[in-house]
Design a protein around this nucleic acid. Sequence first.
DNA 1: CCACTTAAGCAACGGTGTTGCCAAAGTGCA
DNA 2: TGCACTTTGGCAACACCGTTGCTTAAGTGG
Lengths: 385, 385
Amino acid sequence: MGANLPALRSHNAALVLDLLRTAGEAGISRLELAEGTGLTPQAVSKIVARLREEGTVEEAGQRASTGGKPRTVLRLVPSAGYALGVHLDRDELTVVLVDLAGTRVAGRKVPTDLGAGTEAVVTKAVAEVGVLLADADPAGPTGPVLGAAGLRVLGVGVAMPGPLDHFNGVTQRVTGFPQWEGFPLRDVLAGRLGLPVVLDKDTNAAALGIALRGPGDSFAYLHLGTGLGAGLVLGGVLYRGARTDAGEFGHQVIQLDGPLCTCGRHGCIEVLCLEAVARGDIAGAARVLGVGATNLVELLDIERVVLGGRVVDAAADEFVRGVRAVLAPLADIPVTAAAGDGEQTVADGAAQLVLAPLFGRSEAVTPAAASHEGPQANHQAPEIR
Amino acid sequence: MGANLPALRSHNAALVLDLLRTAGEAGISRLELAEGTGLTPQAVSKIVARLREEGTVEEAGQRASTGGKPRTVLRLVPSAGYALGVHLDRDELTVVLVDLAGTRVAGRKVPTDLGAGTEAVVTKAVAEVGVLLADADPAGPTGPVLGAAGLRVLGVGVAMPGPLDHFNGVTQRVTGFPQWEGFPLRDVLAGRLGLPVVLDKDTNAAALGIALRGPGDSFAYLHLGTGLGAGLVLGGVLYRGARTDAGEFGHQVIQLDGPLCTCGRHGCIEVLCLEAVARGDIAGAARVLGVGATNLVELLDIERVVLGGRVVDAAADEFVRGVRAVLAPLADIPVTAAAGDGEQTVADGAAQLVLAPLFGRSEAVTPAAASHEGPQANHQAPEIR
DNA sequence: CCACTTAAGCAACGGTGTTGCCAAAGTGCA
DNA sequence: TGCACTTTGGCAACACCGTTGCTTAAGTGG
């Protein structure tokens, strides 16, 4: 909790990196970085010099002059670091390699059965990662970590259906697959791969990915697939809650004494929504989702709502329109559908679980984290240096 | 956004002060402070030395030895600073003076009518503050600021029914009193009193007050009075949302096509709850509140629920039991009633709006705050020095 | 060609937490 | 009573952070 000089240094470096990432191809000048961060131009110069020496940042031309020396444009070097994203879904395993800019540079998708057991799934995931890296890496399959000789892989983000314990990296009950309860997936995978691993819910991963694409604001990502969940980004940072279980949106009750849900309660959004979908009533499902979204907007004062997941993807326009119809009379909040890559949104977001800390996007530490020393020594938040 | 050495210094000082405040009368030693903050014992020594020189902290005896030099007990000096809390309710004006430890040292309560207009209410509030300070201050009514010669008053926190704009300190529509819409209460009051002023919703003030009494955790304070609102404390910090409008709990819809609410929607918690109360059905009201609380717990993964407000106070036990009954089957979350001082909970909490920043309890800056230069120059977060 | 403007680096500086060492103040046993 | 040991807390030197004051680089415009 206490901060020292190195902490201050990396905090400011993260701010600068985040602005560089947001600027993308267009780049950004030192003075603009100074304005954006509130730091002195001199401080920015020093920080940029360090980042350039590391190879994380490069100069890329200059702006038109405004009467004096033209500003030098700086740009993030995407190839300075990579992260792996693993999406472990009920019936499918997706593995992607993402660069520092958040661009997917390689990806694989194979059918998998979570029911095959933890050992089988872990082995398969490790194998898929190996193949992906071997294909992606021009230097070939040599080097210390799974052939990652040429690429600097910073870590692996793993996204799964919740609930799970993000802090300890342990899976909890996965509906239908009791053998996953209490499995320390993060540490097992970290041991096999020799890389830092971060585990989180699929909805959180997707929300994080969306957060890093847009400006750092507050929004809710509502994911309607097999079930219904939400990822909450509050103040540009993923909100996980005290026990990292936040976002259980599906079982919000919006109809007292409504139909019985699998969770034992009555009138949950999920059961109402899925029943409507089952009978082909997309408008009805969208309306229910809209009521839930309105509750969220009112309660958390967020700035936008993003819809995603298989069911939404199948009729995105209709869902967006339906949610808007409920929300619009009360608040002028944009409602959009997540970029239509389908399920790879989650895999890309999983990779961002590793990258986000570099850009200061995981600062809001909950009390649980403060009292916790953190995961395995060398499996903690990676740092570029 | 960017941090420099002074920022680091005050951040760490705030951590130390927060632990000292939490320790209360019992006090805490330097080494315990080091453990609690994660700082080096040496760093804590330096910080404590500064605080002692300021008069904010004092030595108070020593612990029993455990085989070596006994630990020196440190304690916050409550009289080192004071804050005023003003609760502006629809029909009542409460003014309290609170010391650094959060203890109320003086208070006044007078009937008031918000409908009398902004000028009349402001004048009355200023007068009440003057009387309170004159009574409380042994040095008598001399000195630069309203007779506060002997007391160092750090600022004034003002709590009102929402919605309002906390960042700009401007009131918005207050139901039934259109002349309050868009009134820059914070700056007007700051000008009259010559003190920094902070404006916030009554529910937020109450939640903050409760947060500072307990450990820094996550909880929701549900306030059932004229209306129904919530104050959310997430990770020990008051959550205000992008436009400082978070906590609009009353208009969460939990019954599709339910009874019409004043807000135009159907089946809001507020209308269901108030209707039940009106017909004397406390159990029914508590059940509705319980469903809403359960939704909150699921969505935000908070650790406890606190109930308060006039209606709850009148039948606290029954409300607590009713909410528990709904919540218990799903989560092991404590439900309690706010300490029964009635409405002064809000006034005390209002004073904490001023004190909380000293203890690092308002760090989570929303994006809106970052892009905003802050209020008037000298009406910003006060600092002890 | 030269005055002016704007961008960025160099050097010195104040101030942060850290490290290494030492003094102070107890306990417990011979 | 004396002495070894443990624990607490301060002093001094240090490395390193962003800041300040100034200089150099690189343009524009009359």
